[in-house]
């Protein structure tokens, strides 16, 4: 996993008060390309989140990328960061990934299963996709 991207994010959030952190997340959220409405289906949505989250994945030359969207802006900002870290990686890289930036930028409470924005569910979904891809690659080989 490319730790440089995670370290860059950590640096960006370093020393910020919550107000600025959330403002930054909102600005990332606003910049994230919205998913086309036609892809916001039940299958692509993640249940158990207070805000709606949709995940689509695609494979290019064996590397995985994710389109993520949410109807809540702060959630969208968080998933924009997740996408930045995991996109364009081989499935095994994603499976091995330690997304330590979430803790370092003070969003760990958003990761707990009790927290209903379900960041954990989102990461689980991403890893699930990576697992399936890794397994199908094994079969092909």
């Amino acid at each position: 996993m490319n730790d440089a991207i995670q370290n860059e994010i950590i640096e960006e959030f370093d020393g910020l008060e919550w107000f600025d952190k959330y403002s930054l997340l909102i600005s990332f959220g606003k910049k994230l390309k919205p998913m086309d409405e036609e892809f916001k289906t039940e299958d692509n949505s993640i249940s158990g989140c207070q805000s709606k989250v949709w995940v689509r994945s695609y494979n290019k030359d064996g590397k995985l990328s994710f389109d993520l969207d949410s109807d809540a802006m702060i959630t969208k900002g968080i998933i924009a960061l997740v996408a930045k870290v995991v996109n364009d990686r081989y499935p095994q890289e994603i499976l091995n990934a330690d997304l330590y930036f979430i803790d370092k930028i003070g969003l760990k409470s958003n990761l707990s299963p009790a927290r209903s924005n379900g960041l954990e569910s989102i990461i689980n979904r991403i890893k699930e996709v990576a697992t399936n891809e890794a397994n199908s690659n094994d079969l092909k080989n």
Binding site: Y22, I26, S51, A72, M73, I74, T75, N117
Partner: peptide
Amino acid sequence: IHHYDTGLI
């Protein structure tokens, strides 16, 4: 503004 965003802030 999403209700969840409002609640978080």
